[in-house]
Amino acid sequence: MKRNLAQVVLSTVALLIVLSAFLPDTDGGFSGIVKSADSYFPIWFSIIAVFAFVLGASSLIGSHVRKIKDRETDWQYSVVTVLSFAIVLIVGLAKLGGASGLEGDVSDPASVLGRIFSSVLSPLHATLFSLLAFYMASAAFRSFRIRSLETTVLLVSASIIIIGRLPFASKLFSFLPDALQWLRPDKLSLWMLLVPNTAGQRAVLITVSLGVIAVALKYILGMSRDMFGGQK
């Protein structure tokens, strides 16, 4: 019974949103109610997500405290997590260090939280992203070794794009006769970007959108069996 009721909630909410896409923009009547409900939902989701933080925090702290208690391997690092979590939570909720106290902006760069962001989170974000340069090279090298037709095509087109974007790309192959100038990496990379890339990306986007639509319909029509399970 409870499961059926949950499915009714799911389908009703979803259908209201779908309906709002087809209804005209008016303030009153059924259309107005549906439209206003539609505008509420994103905010409601973010409010629920904040409540869910409690679940996440209890899982995070619980698992690290257990590690510390049981003196598991690398338990010392769990102390770092628990302490840093507690400190940031306290200074953030109290808005410590900001010019206007609680009335100030939570992400004020002068506050303790703002300084923690700029000295800890910001460099960590940037460095992790910069690792991608190394990882891209290793992934490309491995694909080159696999030597299947598909990965070769992927790598060749990636190489043409990279070479085509180099400042001296137009100088390369400038010796080619006029009839073959289109083979110059800068021209070829532009063509690849505008023609095969357009076709491939659009085919992916169309099929992905169909996938999303079908999954969404599956849940709205109540065709998903694994929707509301129990928990141990």
Partner: peptide, 23 residues
């Protein structure tokens, strides 16, 4: 199904489900 990330999975994973294949 994120088009911009599929190439990276294709290049580094043994098997990749591309876009709609994943659904």
């Amino acid at each position: 199904a994120v088009p911009s990330q599929i190439p990276f999975f294709v290049a580094s994973c043994d098997t990749t489900l591309i876009g709609e294949e994943f659904f």
